[in-house]
Design a protein around this nucleic acid. Structure first.
Length: 111
DNA sequence: CCAGTGACGGCTA
DNA sequence: TTAGCCGCCACTG
């Protein structure tokens, strides 16, 4: 594993950890903030690699429509949804309710 | 080395 | 408006 890639991973972890409770963001937003716009897949891939290794609220990261596409990669098929609801984020059919209101853009909020 | 796949996103028909 | 295709980047077979 190259140093560059590891740096990218660290950046992803840092941003994800900065997400406030009850708020969510998208892979593309993080990718864009890190300068890898268009490579949202890398963000998701980084989360997979980080999931068992680093303790980060990956459940607060969803796709651009607010769908819990990665719920299957968690401890259970609905672990991600339950965690979100536990933080006050309502989820309906693997899909975040009021996603546009709960959306947390690192490029704006974090600035 | 080549082809297929994937926690995505934007564009075109 | 909704549905489908292509592009990104790294990994696996």
């Amino acid at each position: 594993m190259s140093e560059d890639k590891r740096n990218f991973f660290s950046d992803v972890y840092e941003v994800v950890r900065l997400i406030p409770e009850g708020r969510v963001t998208s892979y593309g937003a993080i990718a864009s903030y890190l300068g890898s716009k268009g490579s949202a897949r890398m963000v998701g891939w980084a989360l997979i690699a980080s999931h068992p290794a680093v303790n980060i609220p990956a459940h607060r990261v969803v796709n651009r429509v607010g769908m819990l596409t990665g719920s299957q990669h968690f401890e259970g098929p609905n672990a991600m949804q339950e965690r979100l609801e536990k933080e006050g984020v309502k989820v309906k059919n693997d899909q975040v309710v009021d996603f546009d209101k709960l959306f947390w853009d690192p490029a704006k909020e974090l600035l």
